[in-house]
């Protein structure tokens, strides 16, 4: 089972991103679940979502304690929350970062999702759309296939620029 913990802020689209990643895994023929961790919904507050991907039906509903991959959509959260808590020894980290932030002891993939989105003017209600470039970046890591990433974006978003955002993130992320 591959477990992803996604840290974001309320209103950034983290919950939707988790659903889209799980949906792409579903299209890859895997079993997948996406779970938001709800409190009182608050824009701007740190929030967490969980994604599990497996070849077998997933029977676990509790939170992910030992993620294989941690995604950080807003790096300022790292000052408030220990995003590495419980991460597997060989666990990896993907950070939405303009300045190439790295974490110690874990393979880090910094990618400027916000920059990609802003460059394409992909802004919704004042916030840059991070879901679509994130899906592109995740497909580069092989968590989901490129074909499924494309299909998810095509099915979910009408605006062609979302595909472009995903492609740019795919290219910008260095493996």
């Amino acid at each position: 089972m591959f477990e992803i913990r996604l840290h974001s802020r309320g209103g950034q689209g983290g919950v939707t991103a988790a659903k889209l990643i799980a949906y792409a895994a579903f299209l890859d023929g895997k079993y997948a679940t996406a779970t938001p961790l709800y409190g009182a919904e608050r824009r701007g507050a740190p929030v967490v979502s969980f994604i599990r991907i497996d070849d077998e039906p997933i029977r676990i509903y509790s939170q992910i304690r030992n993620p294989d991959l941690v995604i950080v959509l807003d790096e300022s959260i790292m000052q408030l929350v220990d995003v590495l808590h419980g991460i597997k020894p060989d666990g990896e980290v993907l950070i939405n970062s303009q300045k190439g932030t790295e974490v110690e002891g874990h393979r880090t993939y910094p990618v400027d999702l916000t920059g990609i989105s802003l460059a394409l003017d992909l802004v919704l209600a004042g916030n840059p759309i991070l879901n679509t470039p994130l899906i592109g970046a995740i497909s580069k890591l092989g968590v989901i296939s490129q074909a499924s990433a494309k299909q998810v974006i095509a099915e979910t978003f009408r605006d062609e620029r979302n595909v472009e955002a995903a492609l740019r993130a795919y290219e910008e992320l260095k493996i």
Partner: peptide, 11 residues
């Protein structure tokens, strides 16, 4: 009670 909620601010 919810910590420094100023960190949630965008504007």
């Amino acid at each position: 009670a919810a910590g420094k909620t100023g960190t949630w601010r965008t504007f």
